[in-house]
Amino acid sequence: MKTILGRLYLALLILLLLLPPFFWWRGGMWNHGELPTHGMQNATAGAGVALLLYILAKWLRSKQN
């Protein structure tokens, strides 16, 4: 159960990391003083940091075991 949850969480993080650039590329989140960049950067940064921390936690746990 834990592994399934972990994998789902990992998939969610990767999806979250990819979605903002996809929307930006498609042209839906930009323009007129509201460049997508701040929204996109925030979303991507949050997902990126979350992914790194999760990988770090998994690595530490595997070392402890």
């Binding site: 979250l16 903002p20 989140m29 929204g39 925030n42 979303a43 949050g46 936690a57």
Partner: peptide
Amino acid sequence: LISLSLLGMLYGLGNLVYYWD
């Protein structure tokens, strides 16, 4: 670390929801 990761994920998700048209 996993708790921090969850917070990061929520931050990212929140921003995506707020900025996606």
